[in-house]
Amino acid sequence: MTYAISVLTLGGITVILAMGLNVQYGWAGDLNLSYYAYVALGAYVCGVMMLPPPNASEGNFYVLGLHQSFFVGTIVAVAVCAVVGLVVGSIALRRVTGDYFAIVTLSVTLIFYTFSDQYAPLFNGPQGIYGVPHAFGGVLRFSYSGYNLFLLGLVAAVLVVVVFLFEVLYRSAFGRTLRAVRDDPISVSAFGISPYRRKLAAYVLGSAVGGLGGVLLLQYVSAFSPAGWSPLETFLLFSGIIVGGVGSVWGVLFGASVVLIGVPQAVLFIPAPAGAATFLPALQNCIIGLIILVFLYLRPRGLFPERSPVLGFDGALKWQSRPVRFVVGRVRTLLGEGAA
C-alpha cells in the first residue's frame, strides 16, 4: 500500500511535468531541452525558502534560508521560474527557433547544472539541500503514512487543476493561435499576431508549471541535489508526449501515465543480474528510447492525436482530429516552396 502510494505520487508529479512540457513542445512547437532546469530551480527555490538559515558549522551553505511556509515557498518558486523563463525565453526565442533553440536551451541547462553542482554558496553544491520540512507540517501534524497519503491527494489535486486549465487553454483563442504559430508562423504574423510573443507566453507558462512540479518533487523526496537529476531527464518526459499525442491534453495525460509510470514498474519484473545496480535503470531508458523511435516511425501523431476545430458549413466549430493545416501546407508547396 505504501509502495503504491509512493509510485502514484511520483507518477502524478511526472504527468504534471509532461503536461507543462507539452505546452512548449506540443503547442508552441519548440524543442525545449531546458525544461528540467526549471523543475530543479523550482525545487531548489522552494527548498531554500522553507529551510532555516544554513548552519555553516555543519558545512552547509545556501542562499536565503528564510524558514517560510510551504505556501509562500511554492508561490516564490513558481514566480522565480516564470521570471527566469521570461528572461531566458525573451533572449532565446527572439533570435532562434528550431534546432538552434534546442542547442541553446540544452546549453542553458548544462550551465545551470554546473553552477548548482560546483558553486556551493548557491544551493549547497554536490550535497544539495536536504531535510526540507513537510508541507503544512506545522498545521496538520500528520503521521508519516498519513502525510504520504496527504501528499498524494495534493498531487492529484494539482494534476486535476492543471489538466482542467490546459483543456480550457487548448480550446481558447490563445491555444489555437499558439498551435497556428507552430504550424505556420508566417500566416499568423500576416494576421498581425506576433509569433514571438505567443511562443514566449508558452515558454513562461511551461516553465512555471515545471517549477510547480519541481516543488512537488521536492516535497516527495524532501531533498534535492545535482545527483538527483540530469539534463537528459527532460527527454524522458518527451516519451509521454510523443506516445500520447503531441499537443493533445488527454493524450499526454494517458501517454505519460502509461510510459512514465508503467514502464519503470514493468521493468522491475525483469530479473537483473546480481551486483549490477545500473542494469534496470539503463534497461528502462533503452525501452523508453525505443518506444519513442517506434512511435516516431509508425504513429508520429501519437495514440490520441490532437483535435483541431474546423468551420462547418453551418458556421459552427467542429472538432476533428485531422487539421486543415495539411491542405494549407500542400497548397503552399505547390505555389513554389521548391524555389526557395
Binding site: L232, F235, A282, L283, C286, L290
Partner: peptide, 8 residues
C-alpha cells in the same frame, strides 16, 4: 532518442 539508447 538514439543518444539515450546508445548510452544505456
Amino acid at each position: 532518442a538514439g543518444s539515450l539508447i546508445i548510452q544505456d
